[in-house]
Design a protein around this nucleic acid. Sequence first.
DNA 1: GGTCACACAGTTTTT
DNA 2: CTGTGTGACC
Length: 608
Amino acid sequence: MDEILETLNSKQKEAVVKTEGPVLILAGPGSGKTRCITHRLAYLILQKHVNPAAILSITFTNKAANEMKIRTIKLLQEHNLKVKSLPWLGTFHASCVKILRREGKHLPYGSDFVIYDSKDQEETVKKSLLELHLDPKKFSPTNVLYTISSAKNELITAKEYVNHAHGYFQEIVAKVYPKYQSILRKNKALDFDDLIMETIFLFQEVPEVLHKYQNQFQYIQVDEYQDTNKSQYLLTKLLASNHHNICVVGDPGQGIYSWRGADIRNILEFEKDYPEVKVIKLEQNYRSTKTIISAAKQILEVNTDYPSMKLWTENFEGSRISIYEAYSEKDEALFLTDTIKSLLNYGENGEKLFQYSDFAVLYRTNAQSRILEEVLIREGVPYKLLGGVKFYERKEVKDVLAYLKFLANPADMIAWERIQKLGKRRSQKFIDWKEKSNLEKSSSAEILDSILKETGYLEYINNGSEEGISRVENVKELRSVAQSFDRLQDLLENIALIQDEVTPEGQKTDDQNNNSVVLMTLHSAKGLEFPIVFLAGCEEGLLPHSRAMTDKHELEEERRLCYVGITRAKQKLYMTYASKRQIFGAETFGAISRFIEDIDKDLLSWEQ
DNA sequence: GGTCACACAGTTTTT
DNA sequence: CTGTGTGACC
């Protein structure tokens, strides 16, 4: 039975078998964290005979949740256990929605609420401003929303906010927040922050509900704990307050989300909350070369906010980190394209060593991807762009979703207003159709088809231009998503919470999908690894970003971001910077990033 | 009701 | 530079 522990190192084993009481796993990059958590789940079920339904395992992204699900199932199967059920495995938001929907009878808005995404939220803020006769140009909805969201993350309600408001802007927000909240409720909508906040309030106001879930979840696991905000922290604390079987995993050195409310103190002070805590440090790295680990540590060790981990590895020394000073951003793109091509053809001994999918290009801002794409296309290098403008945020997708959302929830005035903006005649046709059709019997794809047909929406967006054609493509893509969800409600819930990666250009061939260079921001690279990594734009002003250079804590976060980027690389790391770069159309000159200068010179080799 | 031109903003991003 | 959104004008 102990064979489940066989493939683990001693620290990992310790973390797996310590199932009772609070555990804090500090896991450096590449230290086998996911492996550790999935084994722990399997160990609980196989060895401790814990009912899977009694385990709550929380991750930050759906991607992580999925991966964990797959790996856990595989592990259980390997040990010949047929699983009747799996642990609750999902994001904070998905878990809270599940609870709220179940407990609808305790909620004033019931179980059938809709979930507003950030665009919907912004619309709602704008509407609130207008109703209060405030000018959205003076008080940017983005900023107001950001302030409200921060308040919600701190569990400050609309009523209380006025007592926390400092300064003119926040006093304005103190007026908008209650309005915003009342519009949400009128529309039977919750925003993302509400999902967590409302669950906590439910727990606090209806103790028997809290007790129910405290009893159900005998074991709680939270991943990426350094990225939790106050409400998420409180939620787990409430659930674990009886049995204290809470295992949190994280790495303060990889905290890169403070700008959206993550509070690194949650992990740093975990020991204060649970004095009996067992702390386990996973510091052996299995991913990268000694050179890469040394460089990463040297960059991170400059930080003083809290102690860094003592990462080490038994891996090879590896080659030096290549630094390239480009003349311009175009030159930078050419350099890395050429490098990819040359490594593709000849390894060091002349044989073909790498394929496209072994390379990743990481950068600080999405805007940097444009020139990279341009050059990669021209040079015929297949690439996959992760992130960028989100599929579900595109105008045409939001439009079609507005029709669907309004059908599912006629109280949703934000959706209705969006529909009206698409033309009076079109909305009238839509309403007429809605009256006479039987929606109960139709699948979501059928409903979508009818709407497109009745309103002539496709003709409306397709003006024959390249733009128009790609918009039609996107709507078709949405239709193919709809096909996998028969019930309209299921489709909408999935879109609101999961927001799976959808490739707007439609189905790509397997070859393109699986064998391409990957382009993404440093933020979205967390958790991934690649044999060869290019860190582009290592310039003062970009990495660290100019907006973060004046504040010590923000600067430390930039450093962690750089650390995250470097530790994605398994074999070889390139760091490039451009002495001249176009930013917002203007030519700017940037100096080499201080992060490169923090690395020992004997770990670096300068290209050309 | 729809189109076109101008203004304007513009880290990071998950849910 | 470039995508988005608003408002004036047909």
